Simulated scan of single mutants.
Amino acid sequence: MTLHRAATVQVVATGTLIFLIIGGAGVGVLALALLGTELFHFSHPGADGPVSLEAVAGFAGAFGFGAAIVNELLGARTPGMVAAAVAGGAVAAVPTAWVAARMSRAARTMRTDPTPTRHHLVGALGLVVTPIPVDGYGEVRVRVAGQPVKLNARADRPIGMGEQIFVVEALSETSVHVETY
């Protein structure tokens, strides 16, 4: 007795394939939009409304994947069932587009600390890492905005390695005038 294996191939409905392509394209555009490329603007560049790129891309992605799921669950082969799949995709897409628009707006308008400048160096405490001679430069390490920064340093008197210093003046972006602390 010989058993024959029959190869079965799962056929994906054309509607499902189209919905999956729409969903994939939406997710791809959403990823690009969230990375800051902003390929298209559907409104004034300074305005962020319900038609932002993130909202449109989120809508397209959720619509495509939601409609594909409903289409497969219904086994949609008739126009009425495909219309039901479209409605199911829209039900998934509207809240997704709203969330994508809100989250992208929140990320764009997030408050951040100002970029530190040389004026933020004044008053910083630190340590001498290379001795400072009277007529030349040594090196100090200070913390600015929580980050360690190594700077060239001058002083009115020699300061040895390991001594604590106080920045009196910022001579440039990379050099300071210091005194012992």
Score class of each variant (00 low, 15 high):
164 Q>H: 12
102 R>D: 09
177 H>N: 14
14 T>N: 05
148 P>Q: 08
6 A>L: 14
52 S>P: 05
6 A>F: 15
78 T>S: 14
94 V>S: 01
126 G>D: 00
101 A>L: 15
105 R>K: 14
19 F>D: 00
60 A>V: 01
175 S>C: 10
24 G>V: 00
123 G>L: 02
56 V>Y: 03
52 S>C: 06
135 D>M: 09
43 S>G: 15
157 R>W: 11
140 V>Y: 03
91 V>T: 02
75 G>T: 05
89 G>Q: 00
1 M>S: 10
157 R>V: 13
116 P>Q: 03
115 T>G: 05
109 T>C: 04
160 G>S: 12
39 L>K: 10
42 F>D: 09
16 T>K: 01
21 I>K: 00
146 G>A: 07
116 P>S: 04
160 G>K: 09
166 F>A: 10
144 V>L: 06
67 A>H: 02
20 L>I: 00
101 A>C: 12
147 Q>T: 14
15 G>E: 04
32 L>R: 06
91 V>W: 00
141 R>Q: 14
48 D>H: 15
67 A>E: 01
109 T>Q: 08
130 T>D: 01
84 A>G: 15
33 A>F: 12
115 T>N: 08
145 A>N: 14
9 V>W: 06
104 S>Q: 08
105 R>V: 12
84 A>L: 15
129 V>W: 03
67 A>L: 03
43 S>C: 15
176 V>F: 05
163 E>V: 11
12 V>A: 07
95 P>V: 04
154 R>Q: 08
170 A>I: 13
46 G>N: 11
29 V>I: 15
154 R>F: 03
47 A>N: 15
169 E>V: 14
100 A>Y: 08
76 A>F: 11
30 L>G: 04
114 P>L: 01
144 V>H: 05
94 V>W: 03
127 L>K: 07
150 K>V: 15
31 A>G: 14
15 G>K: 02
36 G>M: 07
67 A>F: 02
83 A>K: 09
115 T>R: 13
7 A>E: 10
42 F>V: 11
100 A>V: 10
49 G>P: 13
99 V>S: 11
179 E>N: 15
66 G>H: 05
8 T>K: 09
142 V>K: 08
21 I>Y: 02
15 G>P: 01
63 F>I: 03
41 H>M: 12
158 P>W: 06
73 L>W: 08
62 A>V: 06
24 G>T: 05
139 E>K: 05
180 T>V: 13
90 A>S: 02
152 N>F: 05
155 A>L: 06
55 A>G: 04
99 V>P: 14
71 N>D: 06
2 T>R: 13
105 R>N: 08
152 N>E: 06
143 R>E: 10
123 G>Y: 01
4 H>Y: 11
141 R>D: 07
61 G>L: 05
116 P>R: 06
31 A>L: 15
129 V>M: 02
2 T>Y: 09
46 G>R: 13
27 V>C: 10
85 A>R: 04
58 G>V: 04
74 L>C: 07
71 N>F: 02
128 V>K: 00
